[in-house]
Amino acid sequence: MIICRRVNKEFRLNRRPIRVLDDVSLQVAAGESVALIGPSGCGKSTLLGLIAGFFLADGGEVKVEGRVSLMMQQDMLLPHRSVLDNACLPVEVRDKKRLPAARAEAASLLPLFGLDGFGESYPDQLSGGMRQRAALLRTVMDGGDFWLLDEPFGKLDALTKEELQEWLFGIKSRFKPGVLLVTHDINEALVLADRIYVMSERPGRIKAELMVERGQREQQQAEIRRLLLRGK
């Protein structure tokens, strides 16, 4: 379970405080998929950072029960490690003995991630989208109880995106991780999430929360668009 209760966060910019998160409350239950949509700069990545424990909230409470696997907006791949070595790094860090098995598993997943034949390549040899997929593979290999995904498909073409979304949907039902998905893509949120939070511009507040109804794609799409536009 991830619980954020009335979380506040300020950053200092040229000595002046800027408020980034304003009384944000949200939760993700085990096995639940939640999407977070909001305009650029509203504090979505900051919120994920708080949950991952990068920094502390200025006010409110962040509670995480279970292990968190984070995929940041930047891929954070290590340039001196091959794709497979990067993907298996979380396993290597936690339990070296499991590394051979993890490598085999990661290697078998390469085709699905469109990285077939690139397992031994270095990150600098990949395109931006390929690096993103390698980072996603690393998150999957980490296999925590909660996956925090910060725009995991942001750099992909529509087709690859759909493929990976479909696959993520499949693997969710297999491993049952809790997912907190940050995205700008309303459709993606509606496809992947059970619940959606819509955030306001900075300082980020939760503007609305809605349950995804599978049969009402169009109405909900319009509703979210309206929510995002209002206040502009």
Binding site: G49, A52, G53, F54, F55, V68, L70, M72, Q74, M76, L78, P79, H80, L89, P90, V93, R94, D142
Partner: peptide, 26 residues
């Protein structure tokens, strides 16, 4: 940010040094 990321991944101080900082310094 990178160090925070790998710390969150569970790296110890020593692992951070040998797996991240040292190779990047080389």
């Amino acid at each position: 940010e990178m160090l925070a990321f790998y710390r969150a991944m569970g790296m110890s101080r020593r692992q951070l040094f040998t797996m991240v900082r040292l190779p990047l310094a080389l």
